[in-house]
């Protein structure tokens, strides 16, 4: 597999002098599924805005599909890399929900029939079909966020970046987003998720990148990172719910097993209840 995204010694300084990224090195392979976490102000959103060329490096290089983002345009990149931003209302400008989703498709020259089909499909998927004629700005906050996702997913880019997609979503919608990410991933898409929803991460992602103060401070398997107190503290992370329960319980067998999810805890607990787990 080739590289979807390659970041070499990336520094970014905002016009106001804030040094938001301090020497980021990162490779994301085609088809990979990666989650990025870290404290407020760590530089997560700043980093992903480099992936479609919206921000250009102050120093260093960002390559997307091997192309230096400084040598191409946002419009060209956007066709292959879709970013769902953290402030959805920033990207809305249509009067109707339907048009908002259709816009990019029209722009990219899809035939009328395909547009109708795809818009219908994503609006239904995200439970927005009934709102097709409403103004995007009258949606509830969670609905707006789903609309932002729908308008990117409709044109089927190869890399999809989600900045905080689960904010304001209930469990059913989180579940839907999870299923959709799975589906996209199985189709070979590259998925990048920026989030504070660490429980969502452990249930779906196997590579976790931790940022702090403009740097990457950890990059690896969630289980290793999340059971490492030092990284947690540095990253203003708290343990996901299940590891938190394990930690407070201080049950040695579970501490050794390091379960991350409800299912994993269930298996471990059943082991103990059946007697084949070590009571130490």
């Amino acid at each position: 597999m080739g590289e979807a995204i390659e970041v070499r010694n990336l520094w970014y300084i905002y016009p106001n002098g804030v040094v938001a990224l301090k020497g980021i090195n990162l490779e994301i392979r085609l088809g990979e599924k990666v989650a990025i976490v870290g404290p407020n102000g760590a530089g997560k959103s700043t980093l992903i805005k480099h992936f479609n060329g919206l921000l250009k490096p102050t120093k260093g290089v960002v390559r997307v599909f091997g192309v230096d983002t400084r040598k191409t345009t946002v419009a060209t990149l956007a066709r292959r890399i879709g970013i769902v931003f953290q402030n959805p209302y920033h990207q809305f400008f249509s009067e109707k929900v339907w048009d908002e989703v259709a816009f990019a498709l029209k722009n990219f020259g899809f035939p009328e029939e395909t547009i109708r089909h795809r818009v219908t499909k994503v609006l239904r998927l995200f439970d927005l079909y009934d709102y097709a004629d409403r103004s995007p700005f009258t949606l509830s906050s969670g609905e707006m966020r789903r609309l932002a996702m729908a308008s990117i997913l409709a044109y089927d880019p190869d890399i999809i970046v989600f900045d905080e997609p689960t904010v304001g979503q209930d469990r059913f919608h989180k579940e839907k987003i999870r299923e959709y990410i799975k589906l996209l991933s199985s189709q070979g898409k590259t998925i990048i998720l920026v989030t504070h929803d660490i429980d969502f991460v452990v249930e779906e992602f196997d590579r976790l990148i931790v940022m702090s103060e403009g740097r990457i401070i950890a990059d690896g398997a969630p289980r290793e990172i999340l059971y490492n107190e030092e990284i947690l503290t540095k990253a203003s992370l708290i343990l996901p719910q299940i590891p938190r329960l394990v930690k407070y319980s201080e049950i040695p067998f579970l501490l050794k097993h390091k379960p991350l999810t409800e299912d994993e805890l269930l298996i471990a607990v059943l082991g103990i209840l059946r007697g084949d787990g070590g009571r130490c």
């Binding site: 209930d170 469990r171 409800e262 059943l270």
Partner: peptide
């Protein structure tokens, strides 16, 4: 049923409530 994000620990204990 409403899709409330019930804490994982409550969901977990509900799942094992027929065993323990």
């Amino acid at each position: 049923e409403c899709g409330v994000d019930v804490p994982r620990y409550i969901r977990f204990f509900k799942r094992i409530s027929n065993l323990a």
